[in-house]
Amino acid sequence: MGRLARVAILLLTFLPAPALAQLRSVELYAPRPFGHVIGDTLTLTAEIALDAPFVLDPASLPQPRALDYWLDLRDVRLSDHGIEAGVRRYTLDLVYQTFYAPLEPRRLDIPALALSAVDGTRRVPVQVPAWSFLMSPLREIVGTGPGQALALRPDLPPQPIPMVPAWRGLVAALTVALAALGVLAWQMGWGPFGWRRSRPFARAARAVTSLLAASTDVTSNAYRGALLALHRAFDSTAGKGVFAEDLPAFFAGHPPFGTAEAEVRRLFSASRRAFFGDDTAGALKELPPPELAALARRLRSIERSGA
């Protein structure tokens, strides 16, 4: 009899041994086991370690559902930490929500969870242990004042739509618009930026346009004034008087203006005729007013693009 019992014990210890070897451990991390009230969520975390060829069968994971009339399983999250030293580790997060309304502190149980691990042919059970906790009541059993037992917490009144985000967005958009307008005006020489000393050709172009547009039939005076305005722009750009023979040095000092070299030479020869040869008509023929205005605009845009 004693021998039989020993064999039975040996069998019992040997038979489950292979299954135990494949499941290393299941550790349950739970929140505090007391002081929970109706509607609370409880997150249980199970650390599961399996021997390497085994993986947790995803089909054995529970689906979020109502487990009992008072207990819901809200969320199931499984994260796989991979294999390390022949052991595969998982973290299983189980989020429960309790809707029990106790009259006095009461112990309740979250049932155990049966999962399984597979390695292709074999299947071993993995048991996440049960857990119990104390739930506390929210209210006294018998109200002290009349009608207090049925006094409800107040409604949530409707709130106006918050307007602050839209105001903030409007102010930000207008600020950006103002900044962009400033950059644009600076670059185009609009408004106060047009009188900047660093943009003599912008000023000259305005002078040329207004002089040539002032009279329908371009008088020699207006034409000469326009020529003079451009010459002053050349002078103040170079920092000294610029004459036809100084032009190569001017283009060497201000390379972007080199793209308009031919027109600039025409301008200088026309003004030589107008001022020194006293032949305004010839100058008008060599560089007609529309071309003079076009040249002024061209020089202004060359200057603007970073001369």
Binding site: G39, Q97, F99, A101, L138, A149, R153
Partner: peptide, 20 residues
């Protein structure tokens, strides 16, 4: 409470309704 588990007024009133 499923949407906002920390909503105490709903917990309180649910408790009232449960006892009723």
């Amino acid at each position: 409470l499923v949407l906002d588990p920390g909503f105490w007024d709903a917990k309180y009133n649910l408790d009232v309704a449960m006892r009723l």
